[in-house]
């Protein structure tokens, strides 16, 4: 077919094509669309690159790392750094690996998550359904507290916990996590319970249930979604904590983040980058696992934590 491509001719063709238009609109890849994907992919590279480099470094022997190609695949794949990081990395003179910090973190995490959520659920329940004097004031003030930098409370809390004899102990750090977790957890549960129909509570009251019975038999069983959100928030939050663990847990009970920082940042002699990166990955593993497994719940947690009121 011999079609000339002079301007008027192609215009007529285009016009008649429009009159013949039928069915699905032809999908054209526009410049905007290409730009959009280019932006997304560039951003994805920016976000992924550090994780990639971290992983590659952890799998290389030190000889290769000294060559300086951080983006390159390992020529000799080795898990030695991982094993060393886990079982024999040194913090000062102790060379028992970051596994020590891992178990410390677990010991801190479990009771802290439990107590902070229990406190938040109870507070949220009492504030939402019961006529308690000053509950609104209490709530507002707790919220305020949630936003104030820990540095402001730090020193007096150290003295208080020392007076109570829990400074430098697991109990001490658990108490501190519970105290600082309480506002957000209370907010979470209060908002959740405020969204429940008040009739649920009234019906239980009419059935003769009391404060605790309603809490344990009516409210907690309906709270599964918010408990999941709370667990995700607290597990990642407490695992990732550094400052409180550093100050309150004591040398024997240093959580993983603190130990990791010591391993990497307070060494003498040559830095073992592969071991450092392996230790870093190990430290990030728990919250990352939590993130990848929980999927949309993590996003819900962020939204709830950002106080959508």
């Amino acid at each position: 077919m011999n079609v000339s491509v002079s301007a008027p001719n192609s215009a007529t063709i285009a016009a008649s094509a429009v009159q013949l238009a039928r069915g699905r609109k032809p999908h054209r890849l526009t410049a905007g669309r290409i730009g959009l994907y280019a932006f997304l992919i560039t951003a994805a590279i920016f976000f992924l690159l550090p994780a990639y480099v971290m992983l590659m470094t952890s799998l290389k022997p030190m000889d290769e790392i000294r060559d300086g190609a951080i983006f390159a695949f390992p020529r000799t794949l080795t898990f030695e750094a991982w094993w060393a990081a886990w079982s024999s990395a040194c913090t000062g003179l102790n060379c028992n690996g970051i596994s020590v910090g891992f178990w410390n973190s677990i010991k801190i995490l479990v009771p802290s998550v439990f107590f902070s959520i229990a406190a938040g659920a109870l507070n949220g329940y009492a504030m939402s359904f019961w006529r308690v004097k000053g509950a609104n004031l209490l709530f507002a003030a707790l919220l305020f507290g949630a936003f104030i930098p820990y540095q402001v409370f730090m020193y007096p809390l150290v003295i208080m916990s020392a007076t109570l004899g829990v400074y430098n102990s697991i109990a001490g750090i658990v108490i501190v996590h519970t105290i600082f977790g309480m506002p957000l957890m209370t907010l979470l549960f209060r908002n959740y319970y405020a969204g429940l129909p008040i009739e649920l509570f009234k019906a239980a009251r009419i059935d003769g249930a009391g404060f605790w019975r309603i809490f344990f038999w009516v409210m907690l069983p309906t709270s599964t979604p918010i408990i999941i959100v709370a667990v995700i928030l607290q597990v990642t939050g407490i695992w990732n904590d550094f400052m409180l663990g550093l100050i309150f847990a004591g040398r024997e009970n240093q959580p993983m983040t603190v130990q990791l920082n010591n391993i990497v940042n307070s060494v003498t002699g040559e830095r073992v980058y592969n071991l450092n990166m392996a230790a870093t990955i190990l430290t990030a593993a728990v919250p990352l696992l939590c993130y990848f497994l929980s999927g949309r719940w993590f996003v819900r947690g962020i939204a709830a934590g950002a106080i959508k009121g």
Partner: peptide, 28 residues
């Protein structure tokens, strides 16, 4: 894409700092 953009937020600032310290290492 959303998972990729958000995953760093699941990590602590300590981990973040150490990763970037290595990325920005002047010699290697």
């Amino acid at each position: 894409f959303r998972t990729i953009f958000l995953y760093p937020h699941a990590m602590s600032f300590i981990v973040t700092g150490l990763i970037w310290q290595w990325m920005m290492n002047p010699t290697l």
